[in-house]
């Protein structure tokens, strides 16, 4: 089956990203396809490489980056939601005159159309949040 994954909450504050990650990994392990993982609302905060949790805790951002590398996952952070919350890649930083970017490896910033397209392409969309 082809799954689309929507993550609507940030890491640590909320379980959504952990559950989405575990689901995505389990689906891949069972041989399913992941069309895309789309990060929306505070979910965009899963995509900053500046995240530094205590050493004895999981690093959710790195977990997503590693899973993306291993399975060539398409991790998309919504541009409008990202701008509000200060998640920027190199292009966005230049465009808005910011002196740094913070996007994590394997994530990229794109538009909401990617969410709708994910809904069209996937057999099932799984949304994680409240």
């Amino acid at each position: 089956m082809k799954f689309g994954i929507l993550v609507n909450e940030g890491p640590y504050q909320h379980q959504a990203s952990d559950t989405a990650f575990n689901f995505t990994k389990a689906a891949l392990d069972k041989g399913h396809d992941i069309v895309r993982v789309f990060f929306y609302h505070d979910g965009v905060n899963n995509g900053t490489r500046l995240t530094t949790p205590p050493q004895d805790d999981r690093n959710l951002v790195n977990q997503w980056s590693e899973l993306a590398k291993e399975h060539e996952l398409d991790l998309v952070v919504c541009v409008a939601a990202a701008q509000r919350r200060g998640i920027v890649d190199e292009d966005e930083a230049k465009r808005h005159g910011k002196n740094a970017d913070n996007i994590a490896e394997g994530f990229h910033i794109s538009g909401l159309g990617q969410l709708i397209e994910m809904g069209i392409k996937a057999d099932r969309v799984m949304a994680f949040g409240d």
């Binding site: 609302h41 909401l112 159309g113 709708i116 809904g119 069209i120």
Partner: peptide, 30 residues
């Protein structure tokens, strides 16, 4: 596609960002 709105408009950003999805999604002819 069904967009389900469950929250009041201003206490959280869900309503506003939910509406943004609907407007962008309209271009996809679903």
């Amino acid at each position: 596609f069904m967009y389900v709105n469950r929250r009041a408009p201003y206490g959280t950003i869900y309503a506003l960002e939910g509406l943004e999805v609907v407007l962008i999604g309209a271009a996809f002819d679903q």
